[in-house]
Design a protein around this nucleic acid. Structure first.
Lengths: 133, 133
DNA sequence: TGCAACATGTAATACTATAACATATCTAGC
DNA sequence: GCTAGATATGTTATAGTATTACATGTTGCA
């Protein structure tokens, strides 16, 4: 086996890439139901889990949602900036900052394995001095 | 009104303080049911929300759980290190690092309002070179 | 008193995620 | 090819997290 799973993963990855903002697991399932009316949460979660393990998809812990990695190299941890107005998320790379973070935490003997760094706020397009339509 | 709410908040705060690790909202509700058998989720969430607004309680986004702030001054954002083995969470203050983070993100015109920084790993007590009991 | 504003209580339901077990597919060795 | 064991996938049910909508109580002030 394995074949069908990879197809599903690609399908989900494309779906997330095509979307401007992040999608919840159930959003993804809703989209998939268009072609696979009987797909179950477990199946979707398994695929999302595989994708996040691969680094092709990021999970937004503070939103319970998922987005496609915006970079070509999927072997990195990201800093995600989330606009609370329009919902768009930008991915920022800052290995040095994450290293500094690990160093700081490591001083007390803690061994970091995974960083969750998400910054909420308003993006340039939604920022102050801009009025809603 | 307002009085009964503040009492409940203190009760929850004490409960969280007494606990070594973070508690989920429903954990908290379970404890509260000992004295208030009919307390509802909404009530608990409202109190937790007030407490987090005050900075007396931190929400762990990656665990869907809550913990009492370990510092006396509750007017700060924290970096939380979470041991995936034993579940204990340490609070680290690093205003300079958060400022650097804001600066980085701000370069693209993004205006940060809230930082979520959670580091998973293993704490000094659970780290490598230590075998389970 | 009466009412406006707001805090709290209550019930129902929506959203997110996993457990447990059944079924299908693949690979290796015969 | 066939069987057995390992692994991936499908299916059903349920657990865990959070909010909506509306009812009721409380306060302060005209």
């Amino acid at each position: 086996m394995g074949k069908r799973g990879e197809i599903l993963q690609s399908e989900i990855f494309d779906l997330l890439r095509a979307n401007a903002g992040p999608l919840s697991a159930y959003d993804v399932m809703g989209e998939l139901r268009a072609t696979k009316p009987k797909i179950a949460p477990t199946t979707v979660y398994r695929a999302l889990s595989a994708l996040t393990d691969q680094g092709r998809v990021h999970r937004l812990e503070s939103l319970n949602a998922y987005m496609a990695c915006q970079c070509d190299d999927h072997q990195h941890e990201s800093i995600l900036s989330i606009c609370d107005d329009c919902g768009t998320v930008e991915e920022n790379l800052a290995p040095d900052l994450l290293a500094k973070l690990s160093g700081l935490i490591g001083q007390s003997g803690f061994a970091p394995s995974r960083h969750v760094v998400e910054v909420h706020g308003t993006c340039a397009d939604c920022g102050p001095g801009r009025k809603p339509t």
